[in-house]
Simulated scan of single mutants.
Amino acid sequence: MRAVDIAALVDVRDLTVPGGPVGQTWLRIFRPADAAEPLAVVLYVHGDRSAVGNARTRRLASKLVTDLHAAVVVVDYSLSPTARYPVAIEEAYTAAAWIAEHGDEHGLDGARIAVAADSTGCDLADELMLMADDRGGPNLAAHVLLSPRATSVLRAALAA
Rank of each mutant, 00 (worst) to 15 (best):
R31C: 03
A71R: 02
L146F: 09
H143P: 04
V4I: 15
E127L: 10
G53C: 00
V10D: 05
A55W: 10
A51L: 13
M129R: 02
G110S: 11
P21W: 00
P18V: 12
T25D: 07
V73W: 04
D67C: 08
V153M: 12
P148M: 14
N139A: 15
T151I: 15
V65Y: 02
I29M: 07
G53Q: 13
L79Y: 14
V72I: 05
L145P: 01
D118Q: 13
V74E: 06
L140C: 14
A7Q: 04
A117M: 13
A116W: 08
A92G: 04
H102C: 12
V42L: 04
A141P: 00
A100T: 00
S80N: 07
A83W: 03
Y93A: 02
I6H: 01
S152G: 06
V144Y: 10
S152M: 15
Y85T: 09
A92D: 06
A159C: 02
Y93Q: 07
I89P: 09
A159Q: 14
L154Y: 03
A8N: 09
A156N: 12
V10W: 04
A35Q: 09
R112C: 05
A40H: 05
P148S: 12
D104Y: 10
A33K: 15
D126K: 07
Y77F: 15
I29F: 08
L128A: 00
A141H: 05
T57W: 01
A51F: 14
G136K: 12
W98C: 09
G20N: 07
S78M: 11
V72T: 02
G137P: 09
I29S: 03
G47Y: 06
A156F: 05
R155C: 04
L64A: 03
L15P: 05
A3C: 11
V115C: 12
Y93L: 07
L145E: 10
T151F: 04
A142S: 13
L43Y: 03
H143S: 12
A111Y: 01
A36L: 06
Y44A: 10
S80G: 14
D5Y: 02
L128V: 00
L146A: 06
V41T: 01
E127G: 13
D5K: 07
D104I: 11
A92K: 02
V42Y: 04
V17P: 01
I6K: 01
D67E: 14
H69S: 08
A97L: 10
V17F: 08
A83D: 00
T16M: 12
H106I: 03
A159G: 05
Y93P: 06
A36Y: 00
V12E: 08
L64N: 02
E37N: 08
V4C: 03
D67V: 10
C122M: 14
V52C: 14
Y85R: 05
A157W: 02
D118R: 11
A7R: 04
A61Q: 00
A117I: 10
G136F: 10
A7M: 00
D34S: 14
R135N: 11
A33W: 01
L68G: 06
V42P: 06
L15T: 11
A111Q: 15
G103L: 10
P81K: 00
A160I: 05
V75Q: 03
